[in-house]
Write a protein that binds this DNA or RNA. Sequence first.
DNA 1: GTCCCGCGGA
DNA 2: TCCGCAGGAC
Length: 347
Amino acid sequence: MLSLRQANTLSVAVARTQFNAITMYNTRSFSSKSLQPKRDPNPGSESSGGVRVFVRKRRVKETVEANPLHEQKLSSLPDIEEFAYKKVDGSAGSSESPVHWQEVLEGIRKMRSFEDAPVDTMGCEKAGSVLPPKERRFAVLVSSLLSSQTKDHVNHGAIQRLLQNGLLTADAIVKADEETIKGLIYPVGFYTRKASNLKKVAEICLTKYDGDIPSSLEELLSLPGIGPKMAHLVMNVGWNNVQGICVDTHVHRICNRLGWVSRPGTKQRTSTPEETRVALQMWLPKDEWVPINPLLVGFGQTICTPLRPRCGECSVSEFCPSAFKETSSPSSKSKKSRTSKKLSQGN
DNA sequence: GTCCCGCGGA
DNA sequence: TCCGCAGGAC
């Protein structure tokens, strides 16, 4: 279906700092700045490692403190009917968009803007911008492979070590020993599997794409270790070609909480990120497809957290049908046992 | 549904 | 100290 369509590129903000973008998209990324509470009395004056710990401790404390606010706001919530979908005129026919979505996005942007820029470059930005396009794209692909389920600083470290060892090209990785790669990328999550995937991907890139990376969604998806989330990310960042929204669990969770997506023809929540992506693309204007991920990821890390969302600190809770409704554990219940089912996504 | 992983948070 | 996170493969 879709093949090389660079001509199609929307006006995405030029992807100049590719590694940063990877960082921002990374679901597990815990950028130190983004954790910083907006009412922190002395922001600003920090730039490195120690801050991370400090901010984290703070955050734990605040999570607890946030609770009293909940009850206070409960009474002023609008009726759920207000969140009904409405038809949007103009655009591609069948799309419906939730009321107030623009206000919600704007509100989230404002909440995010209280924080410092989520840069956490660790030198990767420099490295990335220096590389010629082909190598840069390959680096983007590798970074995507490694970064899933991995904290950004860990990922940065791994990428840095690969780079320093000259192992950030398809050719070099093909020649390298898998054990070596494994050692260099440790301790990223699932490093054994990723080292193996990395070898396979490099082999494919070298033989089928002359050391470059595939330039279509389908071909990217065929690579081991590259699923929908990362494929869209690589298309966006690597090729500057937006084929779809990069949906991770934060985007998935928040869109469902907001009532922005539902299973086709129903009012039920979507059950997978893929389903969310399709539903979201039905109505969200294309120029929001790229920015929505970093926006919601940051929001999801600081306020709209999976567990005990801080609705009392959320400026758009008035538009959220789920606000103040998930007080205890949201998805899985109290984990009866490992063996019995997880009662998946019960909320 | 389950496994892969180290690590942050409870 | 230990549970659970989270994208992808199977």
